[in-house]
Design a protein around this nucleic acid. Sequence first.
DNA 1: AACGTTCTTGTAAACGTTTACGAAACTTCA
DNA 2: TGAAGTTTCGTAAACGTTTACAAGAACGTT
Lengths: 337, 337
Amino acid sequence: MAEGRKSTLVLVAEHAGVSIATVSRVLNGLPASQKTADAVRAAASELGYVPDATARSLKAGKTEQIALAVADVGNPVYVAMMNQISRAVTDAGYRLVTSSTGNDPDDQIALLDSLNRGYADGVILSPLRVTESLINALQASRLPIVVIGSLPDNVEIDSVRADSVAGMALAVQHLADQGAKRVAFVNGPIDTVPGAARLRGYLAALEEQGMSMNADVQVNADDFTFEAGLVAAQALLDQSTPDAIVCANDLLAIATMKTLAKRGIRVPQDVLLIGMDDTELAELSTPSITSVNLGSVRRAKEAASLLIGRLKDPDAQVARVTIDPTLTIRESSVAPA
Amino acid sequence: MAEGRKSTLVLVAEHAGVSIATVSRVLNGLPASQKTADAVRAAASELGYVPDATARSLKAGKTEQIALAVADVGNPVYVAMMNQISRAVTDAGYRLVTSSTGNDPDDQIALLDSLNRGYADGVILSPLRVTESLINALQASRLPIVVIGSLPDNVEIDSVRADSVAGMALAVQHLADQGAKRVAFVNGPIDTVPGAARLRGYLAALEEQGMSMNADVQVNADDFTFEAGLVAAQALLDQSTPDAIVCANDLLAIATMKTLAKRGIRVPQDVLLIGMDDTELAELSTPSITSVNLGSVRRAKEAASLLIGRLKDPDAQVARVTIDPTLTIRESSVAPA
DNA sequence: AACGTTCTTGTAAACGTTTACGAAACTTCA
DNA sequence: TGAAGTTTCGTAAACGTTTACAAGAACGTT
């Protein structure tokens, strides 16, 4: 096997007594005489030859790499998505380059710029906040991009989105079915895309259920994190006594549950609780948490295959996929008989 | 900015009326006359020129990429480590290529082989099982490697390891301090490196505390996962009634806690509980879980800086770093007054 | 036996950089 | 002013592949 320092085409060629072109052809399965093919393959395996990815990339103009930029790596839903994407991308013969950008759109713009160096063939991006300048950067980019999340309708970029509004409807409907009259909402920052969408969904769902929207039952955490959730839940419970709470993601739900426990309020006996994203966190916790599944796994898969498809066919029509939500009912939302 | 399809050195050179060598020199900060430097920079920025990473890699023989292979992406401790590594690597000007291998050593060997294609300058690897052939592959590899985990002493490869034995001692000591007499152990698979080490630590710690080791208080989950933990905890509780339980990681601890809850056994009132790895899971759960911090964050950081150091100086002495554990005490292990 | 096909393989250019080398231009000093 | 020293910059080679092109070999046909 590998013995000398590195083994290149010319080394194999010398060893097999042929030209480098012939070696390249044989190893790529192009036609050759049986005799030389055997000689080349023998030499190659003796020398432990493996083609150099960089040289091949330079020649071919492709890197076989896909970049992934997720904003919030602390959130289990993004971890789950990343795993899916990693799998899909690897299966398609690409490598995954993970660029952990911050929440800041500017970080993501910087990333897009750096991609012009050509170290990846395409990008999957999941922005929390979508600004004017991010959209400009997206449109200016030379590389195929798939966005996980919502974009304005006039932007011609492949995207895969969740339907938060429908998800909220599922949650509120379920709570109403369980007899809830006063459904509170612990949201994340309202200037993020998911935050805004979930608020819209909440209001619409209340209306649909004919529930009044009291001013005291809605709080916004500073962030979609556990710590921010603790603060927000405190604030909510200080001013209000709902009989059900829906949280904008599972981390906020867990934080809310902890806060409730600290006050001796039991879930689901005293208050019903629903999270969103349906991450493993919801299943692990005790009691387990009912959660709106916004299709993160399917969105991730879809994003990967969309990008891979576009790499094959750059002129394909722009795709705008929406994944329908489902509700995974667990212990936290089922009123005791 | 970027207008034409792509912009190369020759384009900039033509635009500035100089040779490509000059452009390259100016852009790399090598000496040049003020006049031409200005002209080149003007042309470059007008054309939105960015050097091509692939071409540069080919010439330089470096990719500026570091590969990371973690076995178990479902485990929050690996996620945390990955985030650390991602940050450290990015700060040092490298990109991170994540190769999600399975638990199988063969997968990791395949990965090492594929790295001979030269798409990364170094590897960080965290194997769950260390086999003979994995070690051979590690030693045969042309690339610098840092292993997160324990290797046999005669293997000359940089590694960063946890001290599970000391960690177990901390846990058992603390439980004894809280008055526990009968400390059970929910371990993971015993043929993994961490599983074996934690068992050794457990036995040593019991001995040290002068506790008898009853045959009925130790179970091995099939895996370091939540599901496997549920099964293992069932088995444990069916045959034994310990007054304290230490679990080989936080996922197993959470599973154990859920199983206890299902049987109406309260934590910490009826039984004390300790996890390991000190992931955010331990903090999120209710009650929060005391956990042995095996220094995952520090190990990850150390691994990254070790690799980066070796890339700078390939002849540096082999490093074998061990991180000391600490105990993060939370609600689950503190007996009510 | 001469010719036309088809197979096989080598030569050379190309991908976009960096850099050793040497030529030209400019500076300095006697 | 001319020689020596110093800058500045262009030419060309190199990194390791892939591939268009053409030349040569092998074959079949008349």
